[in-house]
């Protein structure tokens, strides 16, 4: 799960190994409980409908956290994230649950990214990456950038 890469072997244009995510209503409940974001827009059908988005949507900050994981899974202990920024372009919906533990059929969200820049400043080694989340239709709903420093 946690890979080990080295700055020397990475090239500009390299793809970050994609991370698939299946968001479920259960996952949203967990996220609400873990962060204290109890906005009903993420769990109540009627409330979400009244706000013109049809049904409950995935928390933006959860999508941001997926893109952080995309990076940390890839760099392992070789480096750390120094800067990270995230913008939300479109809303995303979770799947319903089929059983206590299994999601229903539906959309998978793919977290993807590319290396945009590689440079050194003295003995500090950096990468800059661009990341995004792609929904089931292939649209980019969330965009992010990260600066990673290698030890």
């Amino acid at each position: 799960m946690v890979s080990q890469i080295s700055w020397e072997n990475i090239k500009v244009g390299d793809e970050i190994p994609a991370l698939p995510k299946v968001a479920t209503t259960q996952m949203l409940v967990k996220w609400a409980g873990a962060t204290g974001d109890f906005n009903p827009i993420h769990y109540e059908d009627g409330f979400a409908a009244a706000h013109g988005i049809g049904k409950p949507i995935i928390h933006g900050q959860l999508k941001r956290a997926w893109l952080v994981q995309l990076i940390t899974d890839w760099i392992g202990r070789a480096g750390t994230i120094e800067k990270f920024s995230c913008q939300f372009k479109a809303i995303d919906y979770p799947r319903q649950m089929k059983s206590m533990t299994e999601p229903a059929e539906g959309e998978t969200h793919w977290c993807k990214g590319l290396v945009k820049k590689k440079y050194a400043d003295g003995d500090k080694h950096y990468l800059e990456c661009e990341m995004w989340i792609q929904n089931g239709k292939g649209e980019k709903t969330t965009l992010a950038n990260a600066t990673i420093i290698f030890r």
């Binding site: 799960m1 946690v2 995510k21 996952m27 967990k30 996220w31 409980g33 873990a34 962060t35 959860l62 956290a65 997926w66 994981q69 940390t72 899974d73 202990r77």
Partner: peptide
């Protein structure tokens, strides 16, 4: 416990 609940909500099982 709060760290683990947060990581679990993401689906992130990084041993760190």
């Amino acid at each position: 416990g709060a760290i683990k609940r947060y990581a679990d909500a993401i689906g992130d099982y990084n041993p760190l």
